[in-house]
């Protein structure tokens, strides 16, 4: 059974329909990539998965039953636009996020220290995010998303602002999450990392899913093409110059 099942979800903002009958499945221990051009509806879909938005139509199932509020305690989220309290110390901030996700204060502190260590920034523990570089802030935010060992991790544009070394570190962390059985949903424009890290892909175009399958099936259908070319062929066929097959 899928950990997360998105079934025929639609959503409108006023007269503008953002998602049309979107269906996706995500199993535990699987890293899925969500690709799409800007404005395709990726962030809206992620917000529906997170329970921040209610779909106008369709349902989201968690472990086979409708998604409940307390299921969010088992989700970790790294939003596209990073947000930390600028004047709250990193350790206190992580403790706060941990407590909001149901951990005790002591456990939150312990796990915060562990994650900062794992992400290579233990020294920032007592500093204010205001004084940290963009990349370090992103690591702190990632620690906040993973602190409570969630069953589902949603990463929206996780590579933006990361240098190649830190992108490598993030890829390693994602691999660890998969190894411990977490489901990971990554929305990204970084095709190289998506190709390297993801087990399956969903391509969203103008609010509709135009591809949903494993990376192996994609390679089988387009053996010669790069992921970038396939993606462009799916979402903007007129933009591709050469035949795909």
């Amino acid at each position: 059974m899928s950990l997360l099942s998105i079934q025929h979800v639609s959503h409108c903002f006023g007269p503008h329909r953002v998602l049309h009958d979107v269906s996706l499945q995500l199993e535990s221990g699987v890293v899925a990539g969500l690709l799409g051009l800007n404005g395709a509806g990726k962030t809206t879909l992620i917000r529906i998965v997170n329970g921040m938005l209610r779909p106008d139509g369709g349902t989201v199932l968690w472990d086979g039953r409708p998604l409940r509020d307390d299921d969010r305690l088992n989700m970790g989220y790294l939003p596209e636009e990073r947000g930390l309290y600028p004047r709250m110390r990193v350790d206190e901030q992580l403790c706060h996020w941990g407590r909001l996700k149901g951990l005790s204060a002591a456990e939150s502190r312990r796990r915060a220290a562990r994650w900062l260590e794992r992400l290579g920034v233990p020294e920032v523990s007592r500093r204010l995010p205001l004084h940290l570089s963009k990349g370090t802030q992103q690591k702190v935010q990632l620690a906040a998303a993973l602190l409570h060992d969630p069953g589902l991790v949603v990463l929206d544009e996780p590579f933006s602002g990361l240098d190649p070394l830190n992108a490598q570190l993030l890829a390693a962390v994602v691999a660890e999450l998969r190894a411990r059985g977490a489901a990971v949903l990554i929305s990204s424009h970084n095709m190289a990392f998506v190709e390297k890290m993801c087990d399956r892909l969903a391509v969203l175009h103008a609010g509709r899913i135009c591809f949903d399958g494993t990376l192996d099936s994609l390679r089988h259908d387009w053996p010669q093409a790069s992921l970038s070319d396939v993606f462009l062929h799916l979402v903007a066929p007129d933009a591709t110059q050469e035949p795909m097959l």
């Binding site: 997170n50 329970g51 921040m52 305690l73 939003p79 636009e81 947000g83 309290y85 996020w97």
Partner: peptide, 8 residues
Amino acid sequence: VVEMLLSS
């Protein structure tokens, strides 16, 4: 920050 808060 609010997006993180609303996800929790």
